[in-house]
Amino acid sequence: MKLSRKATLITSVLLAGGLALTGCSSPSAPADGGSTTTQEPAAKGTPLTQDDFAQRIADAQFAAGSVHMTMQMGDSVEGAVEADVVIDKDPKKVQMQMKMNSGGMDGDIRVVDGKMYMNMGELSGGKFLDLSTMPGGAGDIGAILDQVNPGSQVEGFGDALTDFTADPEGPEIDGVKTTQLTLTLDTRKMFEAQPQEGVDIDTLVSTIGESMVYDMFVGPDDLPRRIVMPNVGGMGTGTQEYTKWGEPVKVEAPAKDEIADASSLQG
């Protein structure tokens, strides 16, 4: 399954921005790139600030442990993505099942036990490919797992944030009152902090522009409910919705007879 250029661009932007914004700090990698000695974040329910929002959101996600995510890839791109994710500080314990439809083709991606499986519908004969058996697959999967983990590989993200505002009177989403954070980011620095496999940063900057503005809606429990990035490269609004925080998630690896021999597809 090969996504269109539009879908690839918007998915890359949403993933890089969404995953970075929902976990912009970790105990060993401060968001400002400075000392590892961090100030204790304020308690939940107090106003989010530029200094503490990243750490508080990351901590809340680790405490919740799981989430359901729905992604719309822009007004001009057909298709949607839904995922159930188990969040853990250990990338090997992260689990994810992502189902997507684009251009009439369905895809099923699963991350479990440190491996990634991808079913590309007719293009893979209805079978899953074990990407860890393909050349370079193990390294690529490790990078993807780090990106799914909300506390990993984000040390340089703080440099990408050029403006921050917080409106405590954000809309109610899924029955939860939210604070609306408006975050302006340097496009190049954001993607350098959250590199995406196969994505050319120069092309992204020339297409999207030097900066991007995300609106992030966060509940009183410091958990995000929605991320919106208006007009991705003129392609329309991209949105991620987060629900079912903390509900049990179990991702099953495909059965052996559901997995294709990936080596036979290499050429």
Results as ranks from 00 to 15, higher is better:
residue 1 M to C: 08
residue 2 K to I: 02
residue 2 K to S: 13
residue 3 L to S: 05
residue 5 R to N: 14
residue 5 R to T: 12
residue 8 T to A: 08
residue 9 L to E: 08
residue 10 I to M: 08
residue 11 T to A: 13
residue 14 L to S: 09
residue 16 A to L: 11
residue 16 A to R: 09
residue 16 A to P: 07
residue 16 A to Q: 08
residue 17 G to C: 14
residue 17 G to Y: 13
residue 19 L to V: 05
residue 20 A to I: 03
residue 22 T to D: 14
residue 23 G to N: 14
residue 23 G to A: 05
residue 25 S to C: 13
residue 27 P to G: 07
residue 32 D to F: 14
residue 33 G to F: 13
residue 35 S to K: 12
residue 38 T to Y: 00
residue 42 A to E: 09
residue 44 K to D: 11
residue 45 G to W: 13
residue 46 T to A: 13
residue 55 Q to D: 12
residue 55 Q to E: 14
residue 57 I to P: 15
residue 59 D to T: 10
residue 61 Q to A: 11
residue 62 F to L: 12
residue 63 A to R: 15
residue 63 A to D: 15
residue 64 A to D: 05
residue 70 T to Y: 05
residue 71 M to Y: 03
residue 74 G to Y: 13
residue 74 G to C: 12
residue 80 A to N: 13
residue 81 V to G: 03
residue 82 E to N: 14
residue 82 E to M: 08
residue 83 A to I: 07
residue 83 A to F: 05
residue 83 A to M: 11
residue 84 D to R: 07
residue 87 I to E: 15
residue 88 D to E: 11
residue 93 K to I: 04
residue 94 V to E: 07
residue 99 K to M: 10
residue 101 N to W: 00
residue 101 N to V: 11
residue 103 G to Q: 04
residue 103 G to L: 00
residue 104 G to P: 10
residue 105 M to V: 13
residue 105 M to Y: 04
residue 105 M to E: 00
residue 107 G to S: 05
residue 108 D to M: 04
residue 110 R to Q: 06
residue 112 V to Q: 08
residue 114 G to M: 06
residue 116 M to V: 11
residue 117 Y to D: 03
residue 119 N to E: 01
residue 120 M to V: 09
residue 126 G to V: 05
residue 127 K to S: 13
residue 128 F to W: 03
residue 130 D to G: 02
residue 131 L to S: 11
residue 132 S to R: 01
residue 135 P to Q: 02
residue 137 G to C: 06
residue 146 D to P: 01
residue 148 V to C: 09
residue 149 N to Y: 04
residue 150 P to H: 00
residue 152 S to H: 12
residue 153 Q to H: 12
residue 155 E to H: 03
residue 160 A to Y: 08
residue 162 T to K: 13
residue 163 D to K: 07
residue 165 T to M: 06
residue 166 A to L: 00
residue 169 E to C: 01
residue 170 G to R: 01
residue 173 I to E: 03
residue 175 G to P: 02
residue 177 K to M: 05
residue 177 K to C: 00
residue 180 Q to V: 02
residue 181 L to C: 04
residue 182 T to F: 03
residue 185 L to N: 08
residue 187 T to K: 10
residue 189 K to P: 00
residue 191 F to C: 02
residue 198 G to S: 11
residue 200 D to W: 03
residue 200 D to A: 07
residue 203 T to E: 14
residue 203 T to C: 02
residue 204 L to V: 15
residue 204 L to K: 01
residue 208 I to R: 15
residue 208 I to Y: 09
residue 208 I to G: 11
residue 213 V to R: 14
residue 216 M to N: 09
residue 216 M to P: 01
residue 218 V to M: 11
residue 226 R to G: 03
residue 227 I to K: 08
residue 232 V to G: 05
residue 232 V to E: 04
residue 233 G to L: 07
residue 236 G to T: 08
residue 238 G to S: 09
residue 238 G to M: 03
residue 240 Q to V: 00
residue 241 E to Y: 03
residue 242 Y to F: 14
residue 243 T to V: 09
residue 243 T to P: 02
residue 244 K to Y: 02
residue 248 P to S: 12
residue 249 V to I: 12
residue 252 E to P: 00
residue 252 E to N: 10
residue 253 A to H: 08
residue 258 E to M: 10
residue 259 I to Y: 07
residue 260 A to D: 12
residue 262 A to T: 07
residue 264 S to V: 06
residue 264 S to M: 08
residue 265 L to G: 01
residue 266 Q to Y: 00
